[in-house]
Design a binder for these strands. Structure first.
Length: 105
DNA sequence: TAAGTTGGGAGAACCC
DNA sequence: GGGGTTCTCCCAACTT
């Protein structure tokens, strides 16, 4: 899935969310559609994986990854939820991600 | 107080 | 090479 070169951060995050093996790092919030939350202890693992995916020289951290996440708030793709380590995909972003995800299966 | 989390600005990398 | 977009990095403030 998303096996291209120009993988964007929210593509990668969606992959993590759809992977049951990554549920201990990041998972959907069952009570809110499109809302997901990072594990307080494993959030850096997700970031490290993202850094590897991009082939970064320096190790990625949650701090830096959340900075990129904040950029999505400006473009309206992902919004920050007023809870710790919690973000929300916009309806539109979620729809295109799901379409892309199903199409790549 | 310390640790963890969030936010801003500037610069680098990539694509047209 | 220029312009626009996305991502990375460092620093400071806020919350628990």
């Amino acid at each position: 899935m998303f096996a291209g070169r120009k993988v964007r951060l929210f593509h990668f995050l969606f992959e993590m969310l759809e992977d049951p093996n990554m549920a201990h790092c990041v998972s959907w919030v069952p009570t809110d559609a499109g809302v997901f939350r990072f594990s307080s202890t494993n959030k850096d693992q997700v970031a490290a994986l993202w850094g590897q995916r991009k082939g970064n020289k320096r190790p990625m951290t949650y701090q830096k990854m959340s900075r990129a996440l904040r950029n999505y708030s400006r473009s309206g793709e992902i919004f920050k939820v007023k809870k710790k380590l919690t973000y929300q995909f916009s309806r539109d972003t979620l729809m295109s991600l799901r379409k892309c995800h199903r199409g790549s299966l």
